[in-house]
Simulated assay, not measured.
Amino acid sequence: MPWRLDAMGSMNGATNARKTPPLANGRVISDDTANVAADWLTLMMSGEATDDDRQRWQQWRKAKPDNELAWQHIEAVTGRFKMLPSQAVYKSLSPIANPALAAPKRRKAISTLLWLGAAGMTGVLTSRTQTWQQTVADYRTGIGEQRHVTLNDGTRITLNTASAINVRFDNKRRLVRLVAGEMMIVTAHAAEEQRPFIIETAEGSTRALGTRFTVRQRDGSTTVNVLESMVEITPVDAFNQQRLLRAGEGMTFTRDALGEVVSIDQQVAAWTRQQIIADNVRLADFVVELSRYRMGVMRCDPSVANLRFSGVFPLGDTDRILAMLPNTLPIQIRLRTRYWVTLEAAS
C-alpha cells in the first residue's frame, strides 16, 4: 500500500472493551477481519490504490469466506449511494480530507461499518452531513483550489478553497446556496432585475442589488463584505431584522441576529488575486487563515502565538509562505510530515 494506518494495537485495545463482536450481515467475524477490511476501504477511499493494490484486494476477498462477507457488508451499507462515484462515497465517511494524517479517525469511522448493523449507519452518515453535502454539490473546490463559474444569467462566481455551492434558478428567483467555504459574486445586470438574486447560507439570505460582494460560511455564522453597490441581509430566524449593506461595509450575522456593520477594504478580496494579506496580525490568527489553503494540520505554539507581523504572501505556494516567516519572526518551522506543521520559537 502507498501509505499505512497506525498500528493495530490501539484499535485492538478498544475492541476488547466492546460488549458485542463485529458483525457482517448478522454473522460474527473476527476483530482482525474487521480491521483489515477497514484498511482496504481506507485505501480505496484515498484515491491512491494502484492496479497491484486492487489485485491484492481481490485476492484478500477470495482468501477466506469471512473476508468476502465483511466486504459485502460494507458494500451493502454504502449501496444506497452507488449512483455516485465510489471515491466520493468513501470520502463522505471521513471528516478529514488528507488520508495519511486522518488515519486514526478514518479507521474508527470505517470500522463502524462492521461494528454496527446497516440500520446503525444512519447516525454515522448524519454526523457527516456537511461533508456529504459538499461532495454532491453542483460546484465545489478542494483544499487550496479556486474555481471560476459563470451562471446562465451571466453572473460570475469565484469559489475559494474548500467551498461548495448549489444553484437553483426558476422563473421567480435566482438562488445560490453556499454549502461551505467562501465565494465572490459579480451579479448580472438589468436583464435579470425581475428575478432577485439570493445567496443562502445556514444563517440566512443575502439579496444582491446589482453588486460585487463576498460571502463566507463560518462555523455558526456568515460573513458578507460588499465591494460594490448594495446587498440586503435577512437572518433565517429573524425576518424583521433586515439590513442593507453598502459598498465598503461588512457584517457577520447568525441565524437570529445581525452583527455590527464594519468598514472593509479591498483586502477582504485578496484571495481572488491569489494573495493572503497580513496587516499587523497575530501569528496564531494568520496560521488559522493559512491552514484553510493547506492539506493537513498547522499548529502555532503558544509561546509565539502573539507575535505580530505584516506582509503580502502568494497563496499558490503555502510551502513558500512558511519558509518566508522565519525571515521576519523569531520562529522555526517544524515538519513532522508535510501534513503536520508546527510553528514554534527559534532554538
Rank of each mutant, 00 (worst) to 15 (best):
W40H: 10
M44T: 04
E48M: 09
A49I: 03
T50L: 00
D51A: 14
D52F: 00
D53M: 03
Q55H: 12
Q55V: 13
R56Q: 15
W57D: 09
Q58E: 13
Q58M: 09
W60S: 03
R61A: 14
K62R: 14
A63T: 08
K64R: 15
K64V: 03
P65T: 06
P65L: 08
D66Q: 14
N67A: 11
E68L: 11
E68V: 07
L69C: 06
L69R: 14
A70F: 04
A70V: 12
A70T: 04
W71G: 04
Q72S: 12
H73A: 14
I74R: 04
E75R: 13
G79R: 07
R80F: 01
F81W: 13
K82L: 00
K82G: 01
K82W: 05
S86F: 05
V89D: 02
Y90Q: 04
Y90P: 02
K91V: 03
K91M: 09
K91T: 04
S92V: 00
L93K: 02
L93R: 00
P95D: 13
P95E: 06
I96T: 09
I96R: 03
I96K: 01
I96W: 05
A97S: 09
A97C: 01
N98H: 13
A103Y: 02
P104W: 01
P104Q: 06
R106I: 08
R107N: 03
A109S: 12
I110Q: 03
S111V: 06
L113Q: 02
L113V: 01
L114H: 05
L114T: 12
L116C: 10
A118N: 13
A118H: 05
A118C: 02
A118P: 08
A119Q: 15
G120L: 09
T122I: 13
T122D: 15
G123L: 09
T126A: 14
T126Q: 12
S127V: 03
S127F: 01
T129N: 14
T129W: 07
T129D: 10
T131K: 06
T131E: 15
Q133G: 03
Q134G: 10
T135N: 11
A137G: 13
D138F: 01
Y139I: 07
T141Q: 02
G142R: 14
G144K: 07
R147H: 14
H148I: 06
T150L: 13
T150M: 11
T158C: 06
L159W: 00
L159S: 07
L159F: 09
N160I: 02
T161G: 02
A162N: 12
S163G: 08
S163D: 04
I165K: 07
N166F: 07
V167C: 08
D170I: 11
N171S: 12
N171R: 14
K172P: 01
R173Q: 15
R173P: 04
V176R: 10
R177F: 12
R177W: 08
G181K: 09
G181V: 05
